[in-house]
Design a protein around this nucleic acid. Structure first.
Length: 275
DNA sequence: AACGAAACCTGCGCGC
DNA sequence: TGCGCGCAGGTTTCGT
């Protein structure tokens, strides 16, 4: 489900709904989701704590709890949060249940069980993996930063955009959209990009990501809507999922390729490879 | 250094 | 209707 705009949307919705609540119990129904500690320790470190703030870095969400406890959550492909009354039945794909002292519960659901949760202290939060490994936020890129990162290595542009240690927050949908707006081919070797290309890429990333946040994220292939995520950015997509349709700029037919192991949509007339 | 493939999981849509 | 295959908004690991 989530790239930066979707995670940001979830963050905003969670903030509005559970800030200040105190956790009265935690139930872990799928232990492999927990990283870095066992189920018992995980539960023990959270119960009784209050939710002070909710933050985000790249695609990672983190809950600041009282007493120097931070919970990092990654939704991977299909992770979702739901807020329901405690007494509601636990549905099939809900794996971690947080109950609050006011009768409300926060539930982490994940059909594919790829998501992760990990506890940290304040000291560890930004100084240890995963948050310490992230590159610059996708909507804060500068041409200088991209220039430095791009012009010193050989790599497909799409692989670079998806590399979270280079840029934090871009996933498969927005990578395609950013390439399209920049008139660059996803298979373009970044080594040969010019200063102007770097500037275009930085600007495109900002436009795409910020507009997607404003739209509440993208909802494609949506089965169940998640908390806060019934985004509408799919209405603004230019290439992703548009195989066989006409390019909005030149009318050429948009094709689907495989780049960096991912389904990739491109207008091969507007996005030509150069070197 | 960089790439592809596999692994972690489940469900859906498609062609036969 | 049923089955097998490919595909899915992510990340890590491992072999080349």
């Amino acid at each position: 489900m989530p790239e930066l705009p979707e995670v940001e949307t979830v963050r905003q919705t969670l903030r509005r709904n559970i800030l200040g609540k105190t956790v009265s119990s935690v139930t872990v129904l799928y232990e492999r989701m927990i990283v870095g500690s066992n189920k018992e320790e995980f539960v023990k470190r959270i119960v009784g704590k209050k939710i002070i703030e909710i933050g985000r870095m790249g695609k990672y969400l983190f809950f600041e709890l009282s007493d120097d406890t931070y919970l990092i959550s990654h939704l991977r492909m299909e992770g979702k949060y739901f807020i329901k009354p405690k007494i509601d039945e636990i549905s099939k794909h809900e794996h971690i249940i947080f109950e609050f002292s006011d009768g409300v519960s926060l539930r982490y659901a994940d059909v594919r069980k790829f998501g992760t949760m990990e506890l940290k202290t304040k000291e560890e939060l930004f100084t240890t993996h995963p948050l310490s490994s992230l590159g610059m936020e996708a909507n804060m890129l500068t041409k200088e930063y991209l220039k430095e990162k791009m012009q010193s290595r050989h790599r497909d542009l799409k692989a670079f955009l998806l590399d979270q240690t280079m840029i934090a927050g871009i996933g498969n949908i927005y990578a395609d959209e950013i390439c399209y707006l920049s008139n660059l081919h996803p298979k373009q070797d970044i080594f040969y990009l010019t200063d102007v290309d770097c500037e275009m890429s930085a600007n495109s990333a900002k436009v795409v990501i910020d507009n997607a946040i404003l739209a509440g994220g993208t909802t494609i292939r949506s089965y169940t809507s998640s908390l806060g995520v019934t985004g509408l950015f799919q209405l603004q997509l230019n290439v992703h999922t548009k195989k066989g349709e006409a390019c909005g700029k030149c009318g050429n037919t948009i094709v689907k390729l495989r780049v960096s192991g991912r389904g990739t949509y491109v207008c091969e007339n507007c996005q030509k490879i150069k070197n």
